[in-house]
Write a protein that binds this DNA or RNA. Structure first.
Lengths: 351, 351
DNA sequence: AGGTACCGTGGGAGCGCTCCCACCGGTGAT
DNA sequence: ATCACCGGTGGGAGCGCTCCCACGGTACCT
């Protein structure tokens, strides 16, 4: 419709061609300027930039994607909504980090849900069609086929929360081991002796690492590790209640509990209170995640904070690096990177 | 590289042309089948579909976007991260609704942050370049220029939480008036007589409506409205503490508080407890949002639940309708739509 | 019989960009 | 002076699709 001369076509955004005409140069030169190529003289560059500004030129992403066979988009793939990822503060914080780091680039962020089978199928098509340059993966189950699919398609990907110590994907994680250690060391320092641990879901690698931290902290302090003080939980409140009841039956005299999540701690707290235990006088309680619940609990809950915003940033950094490394399509041999960011104990009144 | 015959080019996804060759038809026919045009014979359609399946053909979005001048993408624009939107459960729930409704379509979801000036500038360019077919707007301040920009660019948009009763954009909201009413009616039914209200930020329309609901509930029950029982808050915990102190000084005998958010209620609860008031025995407490905090508070907090997942769904529905209406570019005259979804009181031990 | 209509179809043109090759003129080496 | 070279540039080709026009064929009218 109305494909006339220079400008002002109906709703018409200016094209490269029009910028070139305006600046009195060729199309290729404008493209070079836009893409920051060094092989342009300063005078020409200035002229082009002026034309770009005057016309309010914005490159057409679709055309660029088509011609260059890249998308300038990355996807954040969110597995089923029941996962911990959707729990506060995980989701929003990570998104904050991702968004902050992305705002320096031209990359756009796609949110893709992979809950239902239909959604997963769509996702597979999506990836097969290479509609994104890279993928951010969060809270993936150990047996999820997605990582393998990504590897096979050779799509750069970064996973938050590695699935195991042998994670093949580039990963970002917080120091769950150190977090677990810090929690227990804090309790020991407070004079606690019988410290129970309600774990997270043990098919989650991070939960395992917290248990490792718990064990080593006790061991290194010269205490033995009583496996009966370790009761499996599942990150939920109900799981916390259940585990706490078991532990209380088993060790009526326990004087501290390290819970695998704040929500779990909330469940444990209920059972402790019903059993007449005072917090922190009789039993000290430490959670994990430093969520809103921890701050508002009564008493406020000591908890291990993960640097989730920074983890989001780190994921983007690593992903962009992988994408950049891949572009020349030559120098493979990029060794897998695993970033581990420190966790921090936030001490409150519960311990 | 290796641009040979039909399939199996290195990483090569099949093109329309290849599907056409395989099915023994022309390019245009395949395009018609892909796009569900009715003007294709059943036999031809079947042949094409078979070829599509055999080749694993997936349309190239970039090419389609370029040729058809549409993007099949919508953006969810998130203003500064400090807003309530990032609070649990808002964000994740709304995303759940949006994602669920979107999974039936070909549309993809872009997440765009518009916090910093730089980000906002990028967003403006983005929109100017018409890189999305529609926009979802959440928790927009009353004086934000974004809605006007969208209107001016004629980009379909839906806002959650209208800025005022005169919202010009299509909007989705929960029934804040009804929610406020329900909270107060519940307290009255429980025999409470001196009911205070700690408001949300009154530049947020929804917070105003909750106050309206509070007033009308009292009025309709034959009680007068004492404006001194209404103390402005700002959705924060600190604001809740502050307002509660003021109210307690003013009305030591108050027996109920309706707080503008759960977090506000948490702040109020602290002050009440420090003042020796028991909940719910001396003072009943009701919050708003039904967040995780409400469930885990001690005692668990009665709160008004907004159907956020459904709001997300509704936003997508309305947005897709607007986009569809716009496509023919003829029949304007679409009247603005404003969906209001019911809020629900979740009664717990605090009242 | 010829005319008109319309359905189903093929394929040209073109969307706006990147990539790359060819070309120009100015250097420095020979 | 001659040649190779290189920085800077212009513009053709083509990415994979949609849009639309034109075409053959059948069916139905007059």
């Amino acid at each position: 419709m109305a494909s006339h001369g220079a400008r002002g076509r109906s709703g018409g955004r200016p094209t490269l061609e029009e910028v070139a005409a305006r600046a009195g140069v060729g199309r290729g030169t404008v493209s070079r300027v836009i893409n920051g190529s060094p092989r342009v003289s300063d005078a020409t560059r200035a002229a082009v930039e002026a034309a770009v500004a005057e016309l309010g030129y914005v490159p057409n992403t679709a055309a660029r994607a088509l011609a260059a066979n890249r998308t300038d988009a990355i996807a954040l793939v969110v597995p089923e909504p029941e996962t911990r990822f959707f729990a506060e503060p995980y989701f929003s914080d990570m998104l904050r980090g991702v968004g902050a780091e992305l705002s320096d680039t031209e990359m756009q962020l796609l949110l893709i849900f992979a809950g239902s089978d239909r959604e997963r199928q769509r996702l597979a098509q999506y990836l097969a069609a290479h509609r994104v340059d890279g993928v951010l993966l969060v809270s993936v189950h150990a047996d999820d086929p997605l990582p393998d699919l990504l590897a096979q398609l050779e799509i750069p990907a970064v996973i938050s929360g590695p699935r195991s110590a042998a994670e093949t994907l580039t990963s970002v994680d917080s120091d769950n081991y150190g977090g677990g250690r810090a929690a227990v060391e804090h309790l020991l320092a407070g004079g606690r002796r019988t410290i129970a641990h309600i774990t997270g879901r043990l098919d989650v690698y991070g939960a395992q690492r917290r248990v490792d931290g718990y064990r080593d902290a006790l061991r290194d302090a010269g205490h033995g590790v009583d496996e009966l003080l370790i009761e499996p939980g599942d990150f939920t409140e109900e799981g916390g209640r259940r585990a706490m009841s078991v532990l209380l039956d088993r060790y009526p005299a326990l004087d501290a509990v390290f819970a695998g999540s704040d929500v779990t701690a909330a469940g444990a707290r209920q059972v402790l209170r019903e059993a007449g235990r005072r917090i922190p006088d009789d039993v000290a309680l430490v959670g994990y995640d430093d969520s809103a619940i921890a701050r508002h609990m009564d008493p406020p809950l000591t908890s291990v904070r993960q640097p989730i915003v920074e983890m989001g940033r780190a994921m983007i950094d690593l992903l962009l690096a992988e994408i950049a490394d891949r572009r020349p399509a030559v120098s493979r041999g990029l060794e897998r990177r695993h970033a581990v960011l420190p966790a921090e104990l936030v001490v409150r009144a519960s311990s």
